[in-house]
């Protein structure tokens, strides 16, 4: 464990909690893409099946359980409890255009052709593009609530910190996972446009609205 990975995990946890609290307290999921949240629930489910087979540490196990629990709770709030506030007309990204290619790629490019490894690979590739429906929805509505931009900032920051963690681990441990690194670079690049708007607008107290 290093400071970059720990900060990354805490940033990820902060993002998940911010979103859950935003929906719960405002009793509304306006502006939130339910499709992205379903994709994140799929990411955690397919990646953390090793909860049943391997024990790494209390930290590892508890964070995985928290991530899975919060992501399913968020999906439940969006599609069940606060369904009336779900903005389905703007959450129209065709997720099958993400899941099918990612599913195919995870069979073609992986470290080991075993079920657990292919599901892990699928979750890595899926996580790289899971935010697209949310970014697409913001481009369609033309704006985002400030709390939603903070959620996106911490979510994007977490994988950027993981990139530094992988540099650190390569340098100090000789460890690297090319699949995770390439997917992590793609994932972080997808946030660049948002990061620019977040820094130039939200951090200056303005509302995030598109076109910039």
């Amino acid at each position: 464990m290093n400071i970059f990975r720990l900060t990354g995990d805490l940033s990820h946890l902060a993002a998940i909690i911010i979103l859950l609290l935003k929906i719960w307290k405002s009793r509304s999921c306006a502006g939130i893409s339910g499709k992205s949240q379903i994709l994140f629930a799929m990411v955690f489910t397919t990646r953390y099946l090793d909860l049943l087979t391997a024990y790494i540490s209390l930290y590892n196990t508890s964070m995985k359980i928290i991530y899975i629990g919060c992501s399913y709770a968020t999906v439940y709030l969006i599609y069940a409890k606060f369904k009336a506030t779900y903005d389905g007309n703007h959450d129209t990204f065709r997720v099958e255009f993400l899941v099918v290619p990612v599913g195919g790629l995870s069979f073609l490019v992986n470290h080991d052709f075993s079920p657990l490894e292919i599901l892990w690979t699928f979750s890595i590739y899926l996580e790289a593009v899971a935010i697209l429906p949310q970014l697409f929805m913001i481009s369609k509505t033309g704006e985002a609530e400030t709390i939603t931009t903070h959620y996106l900032f911490f979510l994007g920051l977490y994988r950027a910190l993981y990139l530094i963690n992988w540099v650190w681990r390569f340098y100090f441990e000789g460890f690297f996972d090319m699949i995770a690194i390439v997917a992590g670079v793609v994932q972080t690049i997808l946030y660049c446009d948002f990061f620019y708007l977040y820094v130039t607008k939200v951090l200056k107290g303005k509302k995030l609205s598109l076109p910039a």
């Binding site: 391997a54 590892n60 991530y67």
Partner: peptide, 10 residues
Amino acid sequence: SDSQKKKDEL
């Protein structure tokens, strides 16, 4: 390959 190192990351 060394990426098979136990998956200890979240």
